[in-house]
């Protein structure tokens, strides 16, 4: 009787469900198409843009990195050998206790620490000196720089093979040079310290250019007027280095130190190829050790437990690295 003046049922507003469906029937669009389109709109709506852009990457990383890591985390609490068909049995913290109380693990960690500290130290010294060398302007500077930077682009395998050939006792060029001066052949890889130095030299040769690159970036960022001021003040070379140059380099030097520590900590390929951990086990780094217990003895649980201890170390170091990266970015 009393019809409302303003239609409240939405019919005239064009929102009627019946009318909508009629239209769809006319166009013979299936319902599924509509829900697909809704899903499409939902997915690409502007507020979901960030999530949608990163989703494929996160899914991929989850499948290929995070999930496997979680799996091996689980495995580390079970008795399990990848080489046997026996189903896993729950072991609790057994393997963590076993790994942490195992003197062999500590020995391998010490070997790794020794190689890392020697190699990183050598890289810092050589890298820094070469950066000072290349800071100046001279003809063919760019070409020579490319020559020196090449080693860090090489593959670990190639470097391993190079040095294996140089260290070869009878016809390796290094051994021959040694024999020429000292009269006796150099059997570097037969002794513990010789083998350690063999690895350290190969690794330092490969990665000193990395340190050089970072230091050089710091050196060229020193403003010229500071050098001019130092010249006016007749500051000594050492004083100029300490008060003008070094402050610009130290941030990058620290980053290089951390980055190389993280990377050298993982050292595997070079050791695997040059000494394979020998003589005995004297150059077996922690990565080589994990490889051996995981893929030669198939002690899957034990290697997983050890992996998680390494994971923890790397997370701490990476955090530290990013902390300094961010601090530097704020300064620049």
């Amino acid at each position: 009787m009393n019809k409302p003046i303003i239609p409240l049922d939405g019919e005239s507003a064009g929102l009627s469900p019946t009318r909508h469906e009629d239209k769809q029937l006319e166009n013979s669009t299936p319902i599924r198409g509509k829900s697909m389109r809704d899903f499409w709109h939902w997915m690409f709506s502007p507020e979901r843009r960030g999530a949608m852009l990163v989703a494929p990457a996160l899914i991929m990383l989850f499948l290929m990195n995070i999930f496997p890591l979680m799996w091996s985390f689980g495995l580390s609490f079970f008795h399990y050998k990848a080489s046997s068909m026996r189903p896993p049995r729950f072991a609790g913290f057994y393997y963590y206790e076993k790994v942490l109380s195992d003197p062999v693990v500590w020995e391998r960690l010490q070997t790794t620490a020794l190689i890392v500290s020697l190699s990183v130290l050598l890289q810092m010294v050589i890298g820094f000196s070469m950066a000072l060398l290349f800071e100046k302007k001279f003809p063919f500077r760019r070409e020579l720089l490319m020559l020196v930077l090449t080693p860090m682009m090489l593959s670990f395998v190639a470097v391993g093979v190079f040095f294996k050939l140089f260290y070869e006792p009878t016809f390796g060029i290094l051994s021959q040079g040694y024999a020429y001066f000292f009269g006796e052949p150099l059997t570097l890889l037969a002794t513990k310290w010789g083998a350690i130095w063999a690895i350290v030299v190969a690794d330092a040769w490969m990665w000193s250019p990395f340190v050089m690159l970072l230091v050089l970036a710091g050196l060229v960022s020193v403003p010229d007027y500071l050098y001019e001021a130092a010249a006016v003040d007749r500051a000594s070379w050492w004083r100029r280095f300490k008060t003008v140059t070094f402050p610009y380099v130290k941030g990058l030097l620290l980053l290089a130190l951390l980055f190389r520590t993280i990377e050298t900590f993982k050292i595997f390929d070079v050791v695997y190829l040059i000494t394979a951990g020998g003589p005995g086990t004297s150059t077996e780094t922690i990565a080589v050790y994990v490889y051996k217990i995981a893929f030669q003895f198939f002690k899957t649980s034990q290697s997983s437990a050890l992996s998680y201890i390494l994971l923890f170390v790397v997370i701490v170091l990476t955090n530290l690295y990013l902390y300094f990266v961010n601090r530097r970015n704020e300064e620049v």
Binding site: P68, I262, K266, F268, I315, L322
Partner: peptide, 20 residues
Amino acid sequence: FVILTTRMLPPIIVIIPIFL
């Protein structure tokens, strides 16, 4: 950070479960 960490990990850690 998590993304960078997955890259910084010793590959040997990731490879055991991936191998399985």
